[in-house]
Amino acid sequence: MGFDHGTLVWFSKSFGLFYLIGLSLLVVAYAYWPSNKKQFDRVAESIIRDEDKPWR
């Protein structure tokens, strides 16, 4: 099958490294995307104001 210990080690040391770096870049891009800032600020602020009933 070729799906032995060596294959797994190769996979985790190659793809395993790069997909984590790729995901990290995506997350940082999302967090620092300029147009997202307004929404983040609004949400962080909005939990402080709490009408204590669902919006309908």
Partner: peptide
């Protein structure tokens, strides 16, 4: 992330940082 800002009556210091640390911890 809910109770501390709520109790202190101040929004979280950096919402961006909270997202980055979320994915950092998860990865």
């Amino acid at each position: 992330y809910y109770y501390l800002p709520k109790r202190a009556n101040r929004p979280i210091f950096s919402y961006r940082l909270s997202i980055i640390s979320f994915w950092g911890i998860t990865f």
